[in-house]
């Protein structure tokens, strides 16, 4: 699904430049449950941003669904993000002025899904993440863990192919971390949604099926920890 070839990212301003990602070659297939691991400063977030089409590489080739992303206009990129990718951020996931339900519906509203259908899907998704009774609460009225769950619900309610999460459990306590991970794993198994997320939490890493270790902008190791379910071909791995 995602094929990265010789991806480089350099951050430069007037005074200095920082070569963040160096010649990354990577492929991720449909249905994978993959963690990008590494110390802070290793380029995890940058890699995720590029994969999520939030940022553009300085050089290199990015094929999404076998199409060259560099050809896409920003409107087209937005459309792909809307329809095919779901995001869960570390914080500030939700629109504070919308209820949990409205937040969950938001992306579907962008896509133009009918009112009746999106409401139904949103309610179902919230119930699937165990927050059915909180649907009319505002984010301020929810705990950190609950907020992240709503974010997940929002991310998947639009039925994306891929969910990208950047350190989703970083601000959660261990119990919430466990339940969030359980949720993501079950979604991956039941619905076949690809999950790519970054973390440096070992408890999170050990639950992943594949771990890509990043250091100083380079892929150090690419580990397969468990069988990928949902019958999708695995990408080749580098050592």
């Amino acid at each position: 699904m995602i094929k990265l070839t010789k991806i480089n990212k350099i951050f430069a301003d007037k005074h200095q430049s920082f070569h963040c990602l160096k010649d990354i070659d990577l492929s991720i297939g449909q249905g994978e449950f993959t963690v990008i691991a590494g110390p802070s400063g290793s380029g995890k977030s940058t890699l995720l941003n590029i994969m999520g089409m939030l940022d553009k590489p300085t050089s290199g080739n990015f094929l999404f669904d076998e199409k060259d992303v560099a050809q896409f206009s920003s409107n087209k990129l937005a459309d792909i993000r809307r329809d095919k990718i779901g995001f869960v951020f570390q914080a500030y996931n939700l629109m504070p002025v919308l209820t949990a339900l409205e937040n969950t519906e938001m992306i579907m509203e962008f896509s133009g899904v009918s009112k009746k259908e999106r409401k139904q899907r949103a309610i179902e998704t919230l119930e699937a993440v165990g927050l059915g009774e909180f649907k009319n609460r505002f984010p301020a009225q929810l705990s950190g863990g609950q907020q992240q769950r709503v974010a997940v619900a929002r991310a998947i309610a639009a039925k994306p192919l891929l969910v990208i999460a950047d350190e989703p459990t970083a601000n959660l306590d261990s119990q919430s971390t466990e339940s969030l991970l359980d949720l993501m794993v079950s979604l991956n198994e039941k619905l076949g949604i690809t999950f790519i997320f970054s973390s440096h939490d070992p408890r999170v890493i050990e639950r992943a099926h594949r771990v890509i270790h990043l250091q100083d902008g380079k892929v150090m190791r690419d580990e397969q920890l468990a069988d990928m379910s949902a019958g999708h071909p695995q990408a080749a791995m580098s050592s």
Partner: peptide, 11 residues
């Protein structure tokens, strides 16, 4: 917030 909306796919 605006960044988030864009990230999520809004125009």
């Amino acid at each position: 917030e605006f960044g988030m909306m864009i990230a999520l796919g809004s125009r």
